[in-house]
Structures are given as structure tokens and as C-alpha cells.
Amino acid sequence: MIEEIAARFPYWATAALIVIGLYGMIAKRSLVKKLIGMNIMQSAIILFFIAGSLREGASVPILFEAGRGASAEDFVNPLPHVLMLTAIVVGVAITGVALAFLVRLREEFGTLDEESLLEQVRR
């Protein structure tokens, strides 16, 4: 069991982070904590992609000198990194919009507690 976890450590870490993030988004009453949970979940997925690109003994995908390391086997897969740059940008945009929402909610309701927000809306 422990060997299994150690052999696939990044995947277990990803799963654990996703669960922690989902827990924060669902169970926490504070909207700020929901947002933090959301960020944890997004980070977990970024970790998952980066972990998937790794290869034992490979180097960064830059051609240092002609002739050496020209085989694809010598490099980590660069595509997931590029995808994750985009995903990070998307994540930052969502976080930015969400923070702007929180500022407006706080101004309007004076609280960021979900229960009390819903109660104020119902009234």
C-alpha cells in the first residue's frame, strides 16, 4: 500500500488536494474560504498535468547544442507546461473576478458568511 502510494506520489497528492479543495468549496460557510478551496483544486490539476509530463532522467526541453540530446527521449514533455500556463491564466482570471465579487458583496451586505447572505436575500 505504502509502496503503491510512494510510486505514484504525485497522483495521490493531486487526489488529496482536489478533495481538500472540494471540501472547502462545499463545507465552508465563508465565501473567502470557498474561494481558497477553489484555488487549491485548480492548483491540484496543474500539479497533475506537470507530474504527467515528467520523465526519469530527462532535462528541460531546450536544445543546448547541436547534436547532443536531440532525441525526444531526453526531454520532459513541454506541452503540459504550456497548457498549464494557459490554465493558470484562466485560474487567475476567475480568482480576480471572484475577488471583485467578494468586495462588492462585502460592501453590499456587510458580511461574507453564506448563511447570513442567503438570509438577507430572502428577506
Partner: peptide
Amino acid sequence: MVAGFRYLV
């Protein structure tokens, strides 16, 4: 506003 934030999450 409240619906929008929950939609976002």
C-alpha cells in the same frame, strides 16, 4: 450578486 458568486463556484 449572491446567485452570481454561487454560480462561479
